[in-house]
Structure formats: C-alpha cells, structure tokens
C-alpha cells in the first residue's frame, strides 16, 4: 500500500523549499515576491497535511492574499536598483557556509532527538504535557485565551495607524517648491 499522502507531502515540501530559494535568487524584487507567494501557498498546503484546514484558509486569505499585496506594493513603490553584489566572490561566502553547516548540524541533532512518533514525548512528572503545562501556567492563567483576538486586533490597528503616520509625507521638507493651495496673504 503506497502512502500517497506521504508522497504528496514530500513533493509539496520540495516545492516549498525550491520556491523559498527562488525568493532569494531571482532577478527582480517583484519576481521574488511572486516566489514568496508560491512559498506561502506551499506552507498553507503543509497545514492541510497537519489537519488544520482552518489555518489553510487563514494562510491563503490573509498571508498570500493580503500581506502579499502589501509586500508587492513595497517592492514596486520603492524602485530599487539591483546591486551587482556577487555573493560567491565576496568574503562573506566562507562565514555563511560555516554558519549554514553549523545551523543544519544543530537543528539536525535537535530533529534526531525526537523519538519515533509513538507515545507522548513531552510528558512531565505530573502527567501533563510540557506544552500544556506551559500554556496553563503562563498563557491561560495570566492572560486568558479569550483575549488573543482582541489583543491582536488592537495591535494590528495600532500598527496600521502608525504606518499611515510614517508613510505620510511631511510637506515642508521634501516638496518646498510645491505651490500652496491657499496662500496666506491675499491682501494685495
């Protein structure tokens, strides 16, 4: 019996990683945003494999529908001239390779620490799972799960207001030659 779900998962994982590499090494910023959207879709499909179809919806409609448009605007509104920085000829290449190998070794050993997927790997002494205990003690009792969505809404509203304030132009500094709509002295 071929586990076609596993095959699909591996194909999707390869696709996701390839598109993620495409984000870094594509010619223009908009292309790299396109690759980012494709990566986000791949990650959304990973959520489907983890039985979290609601998060699939969130990921698609908020991330690759809403945030991606913001990122596309960011790439397009700032006409960035591509630098001729050649990564493989610079003196960054050795540190990056060493850091990457170290990171992969570190994370790989962490992944290897996971025992075979049977039984509960996070059990603590009193029978609760570690994550459960953590959330009970720190998250739920102090903040309460019900406050997540209002908290997020307030945070998002604050961020949007702040970004609008940031992006608004100070008319005095940049556009001094801009004609005034309502001249102050109209007596002559």
């Amino acid at each position: 019996m071929v586990d076609y779900l596993l095959i699909l998962f591996v194909l999707n994982a390869i696709y996701t990683v390839l598109m993620g590499i495409g984000v870094l090494y594509s010619r223009t910023v908009i292309r790299s945003a396109l690759f980012l959207i494709l990566t986000l879709i791949g990650v959304a499909n990973v959520f489907l494999f983890a039985n979290s179809e609601f998060l699939w919806v969130i990921q698609l409609s908020v991330y690759s529908g809403g945030i991606a448009v913001l990122l596309l605007f960011a790439g397009r509104l700032t006409s960035y001239t591509e630098d001729n920085f050649e990564f493989f000829n610079s003196n960054l290449v050795m540190p990056v390779i060493v850091a990457g190998v170290l990171l992969l070794v570190l994370l790989g050993t962490l992944v290897a620490q996971i025992p075979a997927s049977t039984g509960n790997i996070f059990t603590t002494n009193n029978g609760n799972t570690l994550l459960e205990q953590f959330f009970h003690n720190i998250w739920q009792e102090n903040f309460g799960l019900a406050f997540i969505l209002p908290f997020l809404s307030a945070l998002f509203l604050a961020a949007l207001l702040g970004s609008v304030k940031l992006a608004m132009s100070d008319d005095s500094d940049d556009y001094e030659e801009k004609p005034k709509l309502y001249p102050e002295e109209t007596t002559t």
Binding site: L34, E53, F54, V57, S61, S64, G65, R76
Partner: peptide, 26 residues
C-alpha cells in the same frame, strides 16, 4: 462537502489580487 465550505471559496479567490498585480506589472 468541505468543513470550511464558504471560507474555501474566499481563500481561493483571495489569490486573485496579487495575481492581477503581478500580471499588470509583468
């Protein structure tokens, strides 16, 4: 008969705005 029903259609259609933008840019 998906459990996410309506949301599925919304999620699928929310790909369209960035696609339109990319098509216009390209």
């Amino acid at each position: 008969d998906l459990t996410i029903g309506v949301l599925y259609v919304f999620a699928i259609f929310s790909i369209v705005p960035p696609a339109m933008f990319i098509g216009g840019w390209a």
